[in-house]
């Protein structure tokens, strides 16, 4: 049992966090909350990849003369890290854009509550 927890706790926590993010996007009705849920979902997926790169007993992926390169078990896999740098940037830019849209919406309707917004859109 302890073995199982040790092996899979990270994945199960991340599945839980992914669902929490989706909960923020689906159930919460304030637009800023929706954006925060979006950020949580993206951060979760990024951490999922990072966990997939981890090796027991390995060091960070920076070349060290003491270890050499013959033994790949000495370094953590650098491929997911490089890809997730890109994904983090994507997450930041998407969040910034969502904030820009939120400001644009507030200028027009003076509220950020979704039912109120839909209500105001009904009569025009």
């Amino acid at each position: 049992m302890l073995e199982f927890i040790q092996d899979y706790y990270a994945f199960i926590f991340l599945a839980l966090l992914f669902t929490i993010g989706l909960y923020g996007m689906m159930v919460k009705q304030n637009l800023v909350k929706k954006a925060l849920g979006m950020a949580i979902v993206q951060a979760t997926v990024i951490m999922f990849w990072i966990v997939s790169a981890y090796k027991d007993g390995a060091g960070i992926p920076i070349f060290d003369k003491r270890y050499g390169v013959e033994n790949p078990e000495m370094y953590i896999n650098p491929l997911p890290h490089a890809m997730m740098l890109t994904a983090v940037v994507v997450a930041i830019i998407t969040f910034g854009l969502s904030l820009a849209l939120i400001i644009a919406i507030y200028r027009e309707y003076n509220t950020l509550h979704e039912p109120e917004l839909l209500d105001q859109m009904k009569d025009i």
Partner: peptide, 30 residues
Amino acid sequence: RRAPFFAFRYLTLGTAAAAFYLLGVAFIFM
């Protein structure tokens, strides 16, 4: 007037779609 709101909805939906895609690729990669 309504365009920013619909674009925001599209953004949340599209970002969720992208997250699903990235998760699926993570499963395949692993």
